[in-house]
Computed example of a mutant assay.
Amino acid sequence: MKLTIFDCDGVLVNSEEIYLAAELEFLESIGAGFERKAYMQSFMGLSPGMWEAKLQTCVEAKTGAPLPRDFYAQIDRISTVRLEADLAEIPFARQGINKIAILRCVASSTPSTRLRWKLQHVGLIDLFDPHIFSGDLVANGKPAPDLFLHAATAMNALPHECVVVEDSVNGVIAGKAAGMRVIGFTAGNHCSADHGESLLRSGADIIVENYDDLAAAIERFARPH
């Protein structure tokens, strides 16, 4: 292995649990409630544009009416307030990342400005800067492989030399579509007990539950079979 590609939300920072709570609460308030596990599998990891389009369709099917005109603005306002108050690194992220001997970068569906803010806010940006790749760099977001392939090219690595660390079904699908090894990472509090099974069904090569075990898992990929 030459390159480790990290997702951000739910892998480096705890933003997924913040987003999920805000989105599910607000959807419930407008009569468009979702079961948490089904919502995570369908929507987590998508680019903002793909999330909005898919959610619009699903909510209209549930309620028979379009989303309120200010829906996305309200969700963004609620999420931003909670992120500013509660955003933190996933436990032991810095220590775990520092043990990984190969090149590393971030490839996240989050737009560039918000992505860099998250990493700066929790004090992890120095581990990756300038190798931070956002969904607005490519035409097709996850679950398409475009962002991971863009990151590999920028880092001068071939797909088979890359291992992706992902917590979402859509991210796992993207990593496998890119021809990369994929670690399903379940250290975040948003991951239920059976979340790893969902990631394996989506194509993850292995599941890693915490940062203590991540470096060893990546090293195993590098050994000849």
Rank of each mutant, 00 (worst) to 15 (best):
Q95N: 12
G96H: 06
G96P: 04
I97C: 11
I97H: 05
I97D: 03
N98R: 09
K99Y: 01
I100G: 00
I100W: 00
A101T: 14
I102K: 05
I102D: 03
L103H: 08
R104E: 01
R104N: 06
R104K: 15
R104T: 06
C105H: 06
C105L: 14
C105N: 12
A107G: 09
A107R: 10
T110K: 02
T110M: 03
T110R: 05
P111N: 05
S112H: 13
S112E: 13
R114E: 08
R116M: 09
W117Y: 13
L119S: 02
Q120D: 10
H121T: 13
H121Q: 11
V122N: 10
V122A: 11
V122K: 07
I125P: 02
I125M: 12
I125W: 09
D126V: 10
D126G: 08
L127D: 02
F128E: 04
F128D: 08
D129L: 00
D129Y: 13
D129G: 04
D129R: 03
D129Q: 13
P130S: 09
P130L: 13
I132D: 07
I132N: 06
I132M: 13
S134L: 07
G135Q: 09
G135Y: 05
D136C: 04
D136K: 09
D136S: 09
L137I: 06
L137C: 07
V138Y: 02
V138E: 07
A139W: 06
A139E: 15
A139G: 14
N140K: 15
N140T: 06
N140F: 06
N140M: 12
N140I: 01
G141T: 00
G141A: 00
G141S: 02
K142L: 00
A144H: 14
A144Y: 06
A144C: 04
P145M: 11
P145A: 12
D146C: 01
F148P: 03
L149P: 01
L149S: 01
L149V: 06
H150C: 10
H150M: 08
A151F: 09
A152K: 15
A152W: 07
T153Q: 10
A154H: 14
M155C: 14
M155E: 12
N156T: 07
A157V: 02
A157R: 03
A157M: 08
A157T: 04
P159H: 11
P159C: 10
H160Y: 15
H160F: 11
V163T: 15
V164R: 13
V164A: 03
V165D: 13
V165A: 08
E166Q: 06
E166A: 08
S168C: 11
S168R: 00
S168E: 07
S168L: 01
